[in-house]
Design a protein around this nucleic acid. Structure first.
Lengths: 222, 222
DNA sequence: GTCTATATGTTGATAGAC
DNA sequence: GTCTATCAACATATAGAC
């Protein structure tokens, strides 16, 4: 019992310590990217800030690309968490989609380096692992169901459920964050010249898929 | 006379030869960026492809940043030429703006490296020279006048002339090209999953600023 | 898991001969 | 304008002692 417990505890402690170091390394990586650009990341600099020698870092990451992959995954998780925290208490529908969009944009502005990794492809030769990329696909799937729900509830016309509508939606969000990051980096969400137009952008988008506001009996389906 | 002429000719010949070399260097630079990413550009690689030693390249560009600046300027000029060629024969108005937008997107897709340099900011520490950046500002000014003309002609409501409308417009275009370059690089304009939605995106945008389609007497201004 | 040592490569930029 | 030579950094990654 005592032996098992200490073994288990020892194992988990080592494992958690290792995970802590990994997270710390990623923290530094984010700091480096935000300071000097996404392309300025290097194993040497991470190790330097971590207080270890550069070869030691290879015990945690097999390559620089692996670091980028972990950062991509972290970015995905961060965005998902931000959106979920905002969206979970809300009922399905357009209002929920809108709230999620704003949460996403806000999170992207607050984490510009990770957002660049997600929205742009600034690192030559880097592509997220299949496993990592699956997370991105999963988020897109969930977004699809959100739109389908809004259509079912009659808040969007049937065209709102098409892949084209979804792509148009991602284009709108991508446009907001791209212009904000490129032309006014560092600005806060509430004061950014482009992010402050997010409501207008969403109005513009959803107006395209609004249901005809009929009177008492407006084309009900038999 | 003969002397003056030969001197002048000698001077211009040398000058044009020099300009030719510079243009050739920029051609190689574009090829490098398209092959290995915008951040992969280096003086060494340009010189290698140019068939000269790397220090010799410093006779043409004082630094790598100067090369980026020249590339930024070339990208601006290319886009402007493409838009102008499409737009010049058309009368002012929304149709002309739309045609210009499509020409711009098409040109961006055909020149992804230069487009990335213009739309994103992928090179850490690089900012276009004041002179170069002025070209960008000038193009924005012209866009502003295009919108003002469309408002004057009654094709857009007064809100279409506001800075917010213009920013929303740039966000839409930036969203199209960003999503296309990030998620389906290399696709042609006509078949790209995102670029083929350009008309829908423009519909969505201009619908927001459409004038109320009145009957015979729809709110004429006194 | 950390270190030293090292191999091997790259880069931007300058000095100075021709 | 081209070259050689060189500097000073910087990088990724591996081998192997402890």
């Amino acid at each position: 019992m005592a032996i098992d417990s200490s073994q288990a505890a020892g194992f988990t402690r080592r494992a958690t310590r290792r995970l802590q170091t990994i997270e710390e390394a990623l923290d530094h990586a984010v700091a480096i990217m935000e300071a000097d650009g996404v392309g300025a990341l290097s194993m040497s600099e991470i190790a330097r800030r971590l207080g270890i020698r550069q070869p030691s870092l290879y015990k945690y990451f097999p390559s620089l690309h692996a670091v980028y992959d972990a950062l991509f995954a972290r970015g995905l998780a961060l965005m998902e968490a931000a959106v979920m925290a905002t969206v979970t208490p809300l009922p399905a529908g357009v209002a929920r989609i809108r709230a999620g969009a704003k949460a996403w944009i806000r999170c992207a502005v607050d984490n510009p380096a990770l957002a660049q990794l997600l929205v742009w492809r600034p690192v030559p030769g880097f592509q997220p692992t299949g496993e990592t990329f699956a997370g991105s696909t999963r988020q897109m799937d969930q977004l699809r169901t959100e739109f389908a729900a809004a259509v079912d509830r009659g808040e969007l016309n049937p065209e709102g459920g098409t892949p084209e509508a979804l792509r148009l939606y991602t284009m709108v969000l991508s446009g907001v964050i791209s212009q904000q990051m490129a032309n006014q980096p560092g600005a806060a969400f509430d004061t950014g010249l482009f992010t402050r137009l997010i409501d207008d952008a969403l109005d513009m988008f959803f107006a395209r898929y609004s249901v005809p506001q009929g009177g008492s009996d407006a084309k009900p389906r038999p």
